[in-house]
Design a binder for these strands. Structure first.
Length: 185
DNA sequence: GCAGAGATCAGCT
DNA sequence: GCTGATCTCTGCC
């Protein structure tokens, strides 16, 4: 399967979020492969988006959002969980990223079960904190290049059937922006 | 099956 | 000091 080129991420953040649905996220660890189809994403932009980490400017944590597109922005939240984003923005904008909220497990499901310590497949990758645990994504993947073969990258997948949009989850401001995208499984 | 507390880090109004 | 782009475990309030 072909790795998505960097130009894919060099477009408006909201468009990239929508287009990432149905693509495949691949994670290589010690020679084995974990993979899942992206089923839910959210767009986070910059100055026009009060809910975005980048809204108040660059910090030690969010500096990846201001860097090169197609790289991973991983952050630690609520004291215990990592969330996984892809840096994506048009040329005119300084910062932006797409949060990967959910996956449909494809490869290495038994490994994911071990990583997560649960027997339920439905509990593996159904949320941002869960999928990072299943795929062993931590701060060491911060800045990883997703546009080339490495230990973490995104390939082409299946065109999504039906896309559902809605307000983003877990935020208080900018809930009028319908920047959450998901597909039916 | 569902509501509520707890875990505990980085960045703030 | 409080709040959050979260999840799990508890108790039935």
């Amino acid at each position: 399967m072909k790795v998505l080129p960097r130009s894919f991420y060099s477009r408006d953040t909201v468009k990239v979020a929508k287009d990432l649905l149905g693509k495949t996220l691949v994670r290589k660890i010690n020679g084995y492969t974990l993979a899942g189809i992206i089923t839910e994403t959210e767009a986070y932009r910059y100055k026009d988006d009060p809910a975005s980490h980048a809204y108040r400017g660059i910090t030690e944590r969010n500096k990846a959002m201001f860097g090169e597109v197609g790289k991973a922005y991983v952050y630690f939240t609520y004291g215990m969980y990592y969330c996984f984003n892809v840096v994506a923005k048009s040329q005119r904008v300084d910062a932006g990223a797409v949060l990967i909220r959910a996956l449909e497990p494809q490869k290495g499901i038994t490994k994911m079960i071990r990583n997560r310590n649960t027997a339920l497949v439905s509990n593996l990758t159904g949320g941002p904190g869960k999928l990072t645990q299943s795929l062993k994504i931590t701060k060491s993947q911060y800045g990883e290049d997703l546009a080339k073969h490495s230990t973490l990258y995104i390939t082409e997948g299946v065109p999504p059937n039906k896309v559902v949009l809605g307000p983003r989850i877990g935020i208080r401001t900018a809930t009028d922006k319908l920047w959450n995208f998901k597909i039916k499984v």
